[in-house]
Design a protein around this nucleic acid. Structure first.
Lengths: 147, 147
DNA sequence: ATAGATGCAAACTATTTGCATTCAA
DNA sequence: TTGAATGCAAATAGTTTGCATCTAT
């Protein structure tokens, strides 16, 4: 069992390079959103990303954050987590991983475990699988009954 | 590989019994929503449930559908599927199963495969797991490139 | 009889869109 | 220079809530 650790300070050139390679223009807003996403380990919703980006770029608008998140997702630089009953949350952890979802407080934590990843057949009935993600529901350390 | 087949016409008394056992009052609206859910294999969003229930109970309101869905979920008679970028969808398939999610049309299909279910350890770090669901992303039969 | 359920409208929250302006390439 | 990106405001979806009425128990 391993928890994914993301670098605390991704080098700015690397972020710019990622955008560039994906055919996206390198704008301060895009870089800021990407940086916030990579530094956040809590799968923030668009509103939370907005608040954090605001810290370093006070003029940014919420609409732009939405548009940037969509562009990053399209480019494969971020992914969306569908948490039942919650707003969309974003994730810049591109390594295949799973999610521990606390059913009490809604907290989502990354979890990387090669043994959990199910081996996908080339085809499932008529369905052409490309990726599998496991959602593990339960109680996080803070919410579980104390021993 | 097996696809879950739900009974086409669940006996009305069984539905009433389920509600009763869960401590929920047996109302026409609740029964209708439950019946629609059990007959639907496409994980309908609240709006879609509303449209279908309307067919047999023209006076229902959307708000009631929302409330009924919430009560069924609380009672464990239905579950929510978190599809990234989509509204909440509901599912009355209580057997442990996984979801095939088409990344093109958004279609969600149940998929039951004992081999996919990951064995959960009693504890994952500080996290107390209770259930795992696998989301398999890919292209459904209608959307995949024709051979 | 009475707490829980319903229906309506209004309130909220989340997300998208149109459009004029700005800016990276 | 020019199309992509931004910011604003307005529009649209999705969901929840308050409250009076109704109804299953």
């Amino acid at each position: 069992m391993r928890i994914v650790i993301r670098s605390a300070q991704p080098p700015p050139e690397a972020l710019a390079e990622s955008c560039h390679a994906a055919g996206l223009r390198v704008t301060p807003q895009r870089l800021a959103v990407l940086r916030v996403l990579m530094q956040s380990h809590d799968h923030p919703a668009p509103e939370a990303v907005f608040q954090r980006v605001r810290g370093e770029l006070p003029s940014v608008s919420l609409a732009t954050v939405y548009k940037v998140l969509a562009s990053l997702e399209r480019a494969g630089l971020a992914s969306r987590v569908g948490v039942p009953g919650d707003a969309n949350r974003y994730d810049a952890n591109l390594a295949p991983h799973h999610h521990l979802i606390c059913t009490r407080c809604g907290d989502v934590t990354d979890h990387e475990d090669p043994h959990l990843a199910p081996a996908l057949p080339r085809q499932l009935g008529g369905f052409l699988p490309s990726e599998a993600r496991v959602q593990i529901f339960g109680l996080c350390a803070r919410c579980r009954p104390r021993k």
